[in-house]
Every structure is written in C-alpha cells, then in structure tokens.
Design a protein around this nucleic acid. Sequence first.
RNA 1: GGUCCAUUCGUCUAGUGGUUAGGACGUCAGGUUUUCAUCCUGUUAACAGGGGUUCGAUUCCCCUAUGGACUACCA
Length: 502
Amino acid sequence: MEQVRVRFAPSPTGPLHIGGVRTALYNYLFAKKSGGTFILRIEDTDQTRFVEGAEEYIMESLEWCGIIVDEGIKEGGPFGPYRQSDRKAIYREYADILINKGAAYYSFDTTEHLESLRKEAEKTGNTFIYNASNRNELSNSLSLAENEWKIKLEKGEPYVIRYKMPKNEEIHFEDIIRGHIVVNSSTLDDKVLFKSDGMPTYHLANIVDDHLMKISHVIRGEEWLPSLPLHILLYRSFGWDPPLFSHLPLLLKPDGKGKLSKRDGDKMGFPVFPLFWPFGETAKGYREEGYYPDAFVNMIALLGWNPGTEQEIFSMKELIDAFTIDRVGKSGSRFDPEKAKWFNHQYLQKKSNNQLAIEFREFLRTYGHHVDIVNLEVLVGMVKERVSFVRDIWDQTDFFFKAPEMYDQEVIKKRWTPDSAALLMELKAELEKADSFSAVDLEPAIKSWIEEKGYNMGVIMNAFRLVVVGALRGPHMFDIISWIGREETLKRIDKGVSHINK
RNA sequence: GGUCCAUUCGUCUAGUGGUUAGGACGUCAGGUUUUCAUCCUGUUAACAGGGGUUCGAUUCCCCUAUGGACUACCA
C-alpha cells in the first residue's frame, strides 16, 4: 500500500472552529494509525478574507491539542511551500495545462452581468447555471471567435478561467463514509478555477496541491461533498489518479436547527473555539475556560466517531489505535456542552492532588491568596471529586480563605434553634481545650462529648457549619476546621453567634 | 427553487432480517453523607411516517416528511 499522506487545509479567515479542529484530529488519527504523514496547508487564496493572526491561531490550536504537524509552513518539508499564496506561480501553470487540453477556457463576463442573469433566472423560479446549456451565449473563448478573444487577452481585459463541464454525463464516485454517489454533470456549472486577480480558486489550488503533495486521502467537511464531482473531473482532466475521499458530517447546534456557530456558544455559555481569540470581536476558548487539552480532544473525537465498544475515555495514543474512518457516522452531531464538562471532570479526577494544587495555586494568586503547596494538596483532596474544572475548586473552598460575611437566611430559619447559640459556646469551650486540632483526633472527641451530653448531633453540627461556612455546604466539618485552624474556628463561632442572634 | 447528503432514547451513539433494541451524558428516585456535592444503585426514554420485499423488518427497496450542505472571481 502506498504511503498515507493526509492534509488539514484551513483558510486563515479567523479563529479555527471546533468542527475544523475535529477535521484536523481525524486526519491526524488516520495518518498516525498507519504511520503516515500529517500535513498542514494554509489555503489563503482569497486575499480579501485574510485575517491577521489566524494562521498562528491555527498552529497554536493544533499544538495545544497535541496534533503534531509533520509538514507545514513552520515545519517545512519536501513538498513546500505549504502556504498557497506562496505557490501562486504553480497554479497558473496548471490552469494553462487545462486550457491547452481543452478542459478549461477563458471567460470575460463581468460579475455584474452574471449577477443580473442570476437575478433574472430567480424571478422565473429558475437557477442560472453557467455551463454547456448557455456558455455559447456568454462571453468566453468558446463562444467568441479565436481572434476576438485573443485580442481581449492582449488588451489585458480581465478574465477568469473556467472549467469546461461536460454535458449530460453521469459522474460516479465513491466516498469512504457515504459510499457510491452519482451526479449528472448538467446540474453542475463551469466553475471558476482561476480568478481575475491572478489567484486560483479553492478547486484548482486544492487539486493541484493534493496531487503535488502526494495526498493519499482527503478527509474534509461535508460542505465539500457537492463539489466532489468537479474535483473528480479535474483529476481526470489532468490525467491524475484521485486520492480517496471521506466527507465528515457537520457539528450541529445543541438545540434548534443548523450548524454550530459562535452565537450558540455566546448564548449558552460555552466556547466554540479551542483557544481564546483576542482580535476584533473576541471569542472564548476551551483552553481559557479550563479544559484540559486531552479532555477536549477526547470529547471532540467522540463527536461523530465511536469505536464500537463501550470505552469513552481515550488518550491520544488510544484514539490513534482505535480510529478507523469507516466508523465515522453519516449524520451531523449535535454538540452537547454538558457532556463536554463531564469529559473534563473525568480527566481532572485522574490528576494527582499535587498537580491540582499547583494549578490551583496559580488561580489563587489572582485572588491574592498565597498558600503553601502542602496545605493546598490537603484542600484539593477534600473537594476534588466535586469539581470539573480547577477554577471550580475556588467555588468549593472560598470559605476556607475568608470568614463568611453572610449567613444563609433559609438555614437560620430552619435550623437555628433558641439554644443554638448556647450550644455553640459550649462547643467552643470544648474546641478550646482540645489537645489536638487534627480532624482524626477532634472528630471522635467532639462526637463523644455530644453523646455524653445527650445533645442532638444535627442541631449542633448544622449550627456549627452555619457559623463556619455561612451555609450548609462544603466538605466534612472536621476537615474544614482542622484546615483553617483553632484560632480561626473560634473566631468564626463568636462572629457567627453574635451576628445571627442580633 | 435545483443538486447532493442524512434520519435509533432529550443529546452522543451501539446494534441485528427474528434482541427484553445495549451503553454514556442528562432527567428522576433511592442509598451513602450530621450539610452540600461527589459516589453507588435503580429509573426514565428511541428505531420519523407510509408503502413494498419477506414467514418475519428497526435492519433491504421506494415514496413522503423533516433536517443539513451546496448552489460566489469564499473556502
């Protein structure tokens, strides 16, 4: 079998959508599974849509995901350059080959003229198609006499090069995911291959580059499926063997209709991009939201692909081993932000307390708290299972760092009894004279004291939690007070009692 | 409008010409927990509709419906 070579070929028109990341990932997994090569090619043939910073964003996104580029604009490689704007001269050459073969022609129609024809057709409920049915009535090197169009060329009149779509021909082709597809060429138009600005369109550049770069498999989004017949024909006209094609289903909105867009993310509070996009209209990123890259990759991988087993957690290596293109689904997948969180939760659980403490310490610094790592490890250990993100640790532990300012009114109403204050003062006395303030020693001591006195455990402990935490939440009471220490605990009892009794 | 693609629980999906249609997320309920959360257990819920083919169709074929993509000198 020939060497597997795949490419991810985004346009630098803005931040890379997670759908694009998934396309890149599937290409990467497919390549690595067979020891093949993953190529990053930048398709920037539309100068008007170029966005500063997008190219770097794409590369950084792949890097964050752990998708390693073998050949690309940064890495180099034997088939470069890997940026289409740097390959400009190549495309003209191949456009000329097509013209010489009679498979393409010059077209002089203005955009305005074609636009008006299109509008006219629309009025009568028809679709204007520039192809064999009408190309003789339009201005091109097929309809015009040879001397006429040659003069136009010499005079430097603007022109485009169009593909000469065959008339009424059944075009058969295969897609690995979708199987056999047939299209009649009469429904297709004479696509522009080469623009008047001297740049190729996607169709030409893509076919030429895929051939020159010896791409064996094209794995791309479903939006390209309608132009696949054109691409097949182009290969045929050049006399080249086409690669194998796979068209990936789209990522859909979590609810409602249509494909996943940035607006959905904004509306429902989840990112649609891997990284924060800092230019112009900014956009949230998974990295900045606190997702781990391996969790993100895992989540993305299972959106439209599954291994056929019940395994859901996959490292990149496991994904590579398990991935096959024929197990990619045919229908679009709705994106589920809840499940995305679940994946991160799973990955966070696997981190050591030390690792999480280091990450949380970074977070705490923004709040001006400096705590040594050993104490943070203990703290993190208390709340680890209940969080999905490192920043959630703060929501679970804020009261460790500051005494409550407010006390939950509902709880006071329900759980604060007339003798709560007195009981807490007794408890305070017990805590004051306790030999050790570690949870393991303190818990049995206090519990047996409560029992001896015949007090109600719930009444005391709930009141205790209320004055220490401010609400009925948080880890084990004795773990909390052991962490904040005797002095702070006693202070919180006093403060709470006087505040609530007011 | 035209062309092409798709359609299993709310969501991601497994699956087979004969299954109690399986798992995960979510939901709900119970258990654990002195609280909350976690966790555990259980529950919930699906083959878009209609025709065929067949002894039998969720599975194969056709039609309809719905959804999607494309329909630019954008990719």
